[in-house]
Nucleic acid binder design. Structure first.
Length: 224
DNA sequence: GCGTGATCATGA
DNA sequence: TCATGATCACGC
């Protein structure tokens, strides 16, 4: 049910390809689990179930899901048109001690360097157990995409380091954006305020815009 | 609280 | 209608 980590990229591709066409009910049965009938209290279930089925070294470590292969796994909820319904979480935003952090040395780059996207039907009118898993896409950013991602990252991190975290909204960034990533709006973590003073602020995460991932899927599949 | 997996719910 | 800001669960 839960295989060891795949030994090669090819093995991972084959495992993912085998899941295409399965429903979430099939996936749960394969893993010996129950499918949640409502995702409101199980938002990460599909993504975590795919990790288990593919042999990702689970856990919440800040590194790609398949560290030995340098591959990050992302399930992506798609509508009836096959296009993403949601943005994609990438990683936590380092809010302190990262002045001068460049794209090249970032966790965001390490994770986005190679990503296995697995589309999953996400239309709300399809009961969760009946939602189907799609064909996987092993993606790496083309130079033009990486250039934009790199610029977004460095511009956003510059704001963070200059003490402008509180001024950052999800409107900033072309492909990459910063949004809250916390249990609730009262959560607090250490950050830098104006004048470089320490502040307590809402934890944030980097996300890929849905319009960006839509572009990826369009490039590789026949989509509107 | 942190970092992971994300989707929900509502205001624009 | 859709993206933003808010929220849910889990292991540690």
């Amino acid at each position: 049910m839960e295989p060891p980590p795949p030994e090669s990229e090819e093995e991972l591709r084959l495992r993912a390809r085998r899941l295409a066409g399965w429903t979430l009910s099939d996936l749960a049965g394969h893993l010996g689990e129950r499918v949640p009938l409502d995702l409101r209290r199980a938002k990460g279930w599909a993504g975590e179930a795919l990790e288990r089925a593919l042999g990702a070294t689970s856990g919440s470590q800040p590194e790609p899901d398949f560290p030995h292969l340098g591959i990050e796994l992302k399930s992506i909820p798609v509508g009836h048109d096959g296009l993403p319904r949601e943005s994609t979480y990438v990683s936590t935003v380092p809010l302190i001690g990262h002045a001068g952090l460049r794209w090249e040395g970032s966790l965001v780059r390490r994770k986005l360097c190679r990503v296995l996207f697995i589309p999953v039907e996400g239309a709300r009118d399809i009961p969760v157990p009946l939602r189907r898993i799609g064909s996987p896409l092993l993606w790496s950013p083309i130079p033009e995409e990486e250039a934009v991602l790199s610029r977004d990252f460095e511009e956003l991190m510059e704001m963070v380091c200059l003490g402008e975290v509180e001024r950052i909204s999800a409107h900033y960034g072309t492909y990459l954006q910063i949004r809250p990533k916390a249990a609730n709006a009262r959560a607090r973590t250490a950050g830098v305020g104006t004048d470089g003073r320490a502040i307590e602020t809402l934890p944030r995460g980097f996300y890929l815009r849905a319009t960006f991932t839509a572009g990826l899927l369009r490039r590789h599949f026949l989509l509107p």
